[in-house]
Write a protein that binds this DNA or RNA. Structure first.
Lengths: 107, 107
DNA sequence: TTAATCCATAACCTGATAGTTATGGATTTC
DNA sequence: GAAATCCATAACTATCAGGTTATGGATTAA
């Protein structure tokens, strides 16, 4: 089940891809052309990144005539949030255990 | 300053490296040998991963005789938490804006 | 002192991937 | 219908990163 964060981390690791996702989060739905215009890479590169983002469930696409609109998919980041809080939780648990141990030694 | 999540995402994108970090979070401080024993890769590979994790601020090392103990560094995940909540925040803002717009149209 | 253990670094190999150009299908515009 | 626009896919290239083996320095054990 820990396979969910894996795809998310891999997908968001690339800077230009993450920049595209960030822009969709900030400004909402965008066409491929609009995203390409300020991405610094070619249109096919953007299309590939969008494909990767879509496969990771981070974006949705909507076809309208000859253009495709992409939008960030809310909730797709949830496994990431879960993972981080889980890691923080483990750390907290060990702190608590240490605390207990010290208390027992103190008596 | 948005360079902080970049290193974190890149560092955590690799599965075996993330597994090492997870184990340090779950079980606390470990020697390189212990980490190697269940990593499925060679000791030099583990050392390199630990170096990457250290450079990202995700782990600390402590030398004791001829062995090195590594431990997860709490708080190193904070930029990740910030980034995700920021993305979620953007999305929420746009929802609010849409809500406002609909309310204004309704009148 | 010698031998063995632990770890880090170097050197090298290989596969994955992000980038490119070329192309074509679908749609709109003239 | 013809031309132009938008986007996706194919094919190729080059870079990078994760893996390996080899090695050596530092420390502990015999």
């Amino acid at each position: 089940m820990s396979t969910a964060p894996d795809l998310l981390f891999r997908t968001l690791a690339d800077p230009t891809r993450r920049a595209i996702f960030e822009r969709l989060c900030r400004e909402g739905e965008q066409t491929v052309g609009a995203l390409t215009a300020q991405s610094g890479v070619s249109q096919p590169a953007v299309s590939k990144h969008l494909g990767a983002l879509k496969q990771a469930g981070l974006v949705r696409d909507r076809h309208e005539g000859r253009q495709t609109h992409y939008s960030a998919q809310p909730g797709a980041l949830n496994p990431l949030v879960d993972w981080t809080s889980q890691m923080a939780g483990f750390w907290q648990n060990r702190l608590d255990a240490l605390d207990d141990l010290l208390k027992r030694m103190d008596q």
